[in-house]
Design a protein around this nucleic acid. Structure first.
Lengths: 245, 245
DNA sequence: GAGTGGTCTAGACCACTTC
DNA sequence: AAGTGGTCTAGACCACTCA
């Protein structure tokens, strides 16, 4: 038994995903009907529907009553969704760069103000771990980030976590499940201090993102305010319309 | 029969959505189990699951095997998702403004270059309808937009469509279904000409969005390059993690 | 009329959590 | 042991599309 117990619907799902992603089926191509698939895999129609439905919400396919199921993407040129979340991902403009260097500029405990309390589901004056870090590729400054974490959730966290990947720490050391995030994106002029870090001039444009990240139990564990170097970053998003009628 | 034929699962879905949105159930609260709901509505468990699943995909709830189903949002303070698409919406910073004025600056036919051909699924030198418009609230400039439409899809379109809502025209006059869009967001410095329109200085930051919009048949019908006045706009996005395990 | 997807049933067995 | 959600079955009737 080297095979784990993968549900049948996931097998079907992956099989279809594969022929879409490798370009065997192209945009607009017809996918086998539910009846055909249930015959092929020897499963009930409801099981096929579970696979199909997942592909539908992920935007791989679209369906028409009476007509069939069609491939939505042309070879999915756009995104492997390299990020952690579906539907939204930051993309480096220049594919030859990548973050390989985290410098922690500040690491201290502060007290919660009203806005932080609201975002992090805390009370005013609760303790917060505050981290300020700069991400670079070699000597190219890419991201300036301020993180706010509830101290009681991370009583023993140390500075060196933030020199590596904080999310990896949360997921692999603490074994928490990251579930959701809400972000707001703006264009902002660089302040003098961030401009210095970015080796740019004060007033130059940057992408500014404020973000709250949640675990699968609904708890907010991280609030961040981030500047992305506009020379190297864009954000990409694919949105599928909800059904209306 | 004043009631339309609404599927039962949608009734269940809406009932649950209601008690979440009006705050009766708060973040972390337990929702009735599948067995309870199927008893209450006198339907099979699979039907309840369809309702629950939709709420899950939309991020209203989260589930734990063996424990139950819980409310994910605290009163859904964040978004009615006022836009057309789920998961991503532009939000005015100042809620007292709104676009009430479209000025068409340019309306002409041009020929397709390579990039446009790729984005709009056309051939080089195919005809394109090009529109340049400025959206304002009174005399506050909000959005500067360049639209590129395949001429063969809109052979008889007129300028006045763009003084109102182009999307309303597509959906309500042509009765096409808008299904998907892909966007890329950057921070850009205003060019001299756009700065003039925005009554700002050259070099000030703006949000720049390039976007392709698709119909439900997979056809791209619109490519746009848009500057959003950074003083009045931010973009908001809620992202739910795909299952990984 | 044949084929498609949309809705729905009344069961079943399993894995996981809580007591 | 009892309750929860996760997977799955083998049917059914319907509305829609296309030939």
């Amino acid at each position: 038994m080297s095979e784990k117990n993968i549900p049948i619907y996931q097998v079907i799902e992956n099989d279809i995903k594969k022929v879409i992603l490798d370009g065997t089926l192209k945009q607009g191509d017809l996918i086998p009907s539910e009846t055909e698939l249930s015959a092929k895999y020897n499963v009930s129609r409801m099981t096929v529907r579970q696979a199909i439905n997942n592909l539908l919400v992920d935007g791989f396919i679209y369906r028409h009553k009476g007509r069939g199921t069609f491939v939505a993407f042309n070879k999915m040129e756009m995104e492997k969704t390299s990020g952690r979340f579906s539907g939204f991902s930051s993309v480096m403009k220049d594919l030859n760069i990548e973050v390989n260097n985290n410098t922690v500029l500040e690491f201290k405990t502060i007290l919660c103000d009203e806005l932080l309390a609201k975002r992090l589901q805390l009370e005013v004056n609760d303790e917060i771990v505050f981290i300020e870090r700069l991400k670079e590729d070699g000597d190219i400054p890419l991201v300036y980030e301020r993180l706010y974490l509830p101290k009681k959730m991370f009583p023993d966290i140390t500075k060196d976590v933030f020199e590596k990947s904080f999310y990896d720490y949360v997921e692999n050391e603490l074994n928490w499940k990251i579930k959701r995030c809400t972000s707001a994106i703006e264009a902002r002029a660089l302040t003098k201090s961030v401009a210095n870090l970015f080796k740019q001039k004060e007033g130059e444009p940057a992408l500014y993102v404020s973000n709250v990240t949640y675990l699968d139990n609904g708890r907010a564990f991280e609030y961040s305010r981030t500047y992305y170097n506009a020379q190297y970053f864009r954000f990409r998003s694919t949105n599928t319309r909800k059904e209306v009628d």
